[in-house]
């Protein structure tokens, strides 16, 4: 890796039942991926308030990943359907804030998809590297 290459900061909100377990499986199976992501565990992708995503960008993230169970497989039956709708609506708002919508990703990763988790993080990291650093959001206070 070239010295001084841009290293994007990524935050991942992973649902406890599928994607967090999928990330654990990637570990158990030693499927390496770029170390750019920091992981926050949530019970369900439907727990993720869009506010958290915006706050994360404000905090300096270059990319935010929300991952949940595949549609129809939600541990709580329908949580991920809410997140699908919610984040479809968030994208244009991100644009409005000057954050390219490619910097946000919603993915479905099941507990058995360690490989998929590793692939998602790898491709997201590479895409963000191509996009380059994000224009700094003026921080409107902390709260």
């Amino acid at each position: 890796m070239a010295v001084g290459e841009f290293e994007p900061k990524i935050a991942g909100f992973l649902c406890n039942w599928c994607s967090y377990a999928g990330a654990d499986l990637a570990g158990t199976s030693r499927m390496s991926y770029p170390p750019n992501i920091r992981i926050i565990r949530v019970p369900c992708s439907g727990r993720v308030d869009p506010l958290f995503v915006v706050k994360t960008f404000q905090q300096g993230a270059d990319g935010v990943l929300v991952a949940g169970c595949h549609l129809g497989d939600c541990h709580y039956n329908e949580g991920n359907f809410y997140s699908r709708r919610r984040f479809a609506l968030l994208a244009p708002f991100l644009d409005y804030l000057g954050i390219q919508k490619e910097r946000f990703r919603l993915e479905w990763v099941s507990a058995s998809e360690g490989r998929k988790f590793s692939d998602v993080v790898t491709s997201f990291t590479n895409d963000l590297k191509k996009l380059g650093p994000r224009n700094v959001l003026s921080s409107g206070g902390r709260g």
């Binding site: 019970p43 369900c44 439907g46 727990r47 993720v48 709580y76 949580g79």
Partner: peptide, 9 residues
């Protein structure tokens, strides 16, 4: 069951 859908909305 603690899914957290309610606080998000």
């Amino acid at each position: 069951r603690a899914c957290g859908l309610c606080p998000a909305v």
